[in-house]
Amino acid sequence: MAIPTYYPPRAYRTRVSTYWWLRSWPYLRFILRELSSISVAWFVLVTLLQLGALHRGPAEYARFGEWLRSPLMIAGNAVALFFLLFHAITWFNLAPKAMAVRIRGKRVPPLFITVPNYIAWLAASLFVAFVLLRG
């Protein structure tokens, strides 16, 4: 379907402010969730460095452990952990939107998708805790 040519008057365009995400909590929450990817990258990096240290022998690994225990690293990791939790929780809460599961023609209620995610998370955490705390 075509639209005829017209001579539009001078329409006013508002530019979106650089700080648009400070305007409301939902926008801020979104930006924080996006920023949390930095924390994810950080944890990946730490894990890679850890593997590298492990590869280079016990002395190197001990020094790596020492470095991890420095107050700066603990603080940094605490912040990263906070962001990761934030990411996980907000993401799990959004999951039902992305997944439209239908059983016998009826869409399953959102909780049926959110709750298994949390259960899987809990189970994985318990397993990791078991492996780490066993010895």
């Binding site: 939902p26 926008y27 979104f30 996006e34 959004l94 939107k97 992305a98």
Partner: peptide, 9 residues
Amino acid sequence: CTFVGECTE
């Protein structure tokens, strides 16, 4: 879409 989700709200 970066899934801000406000459209639905």
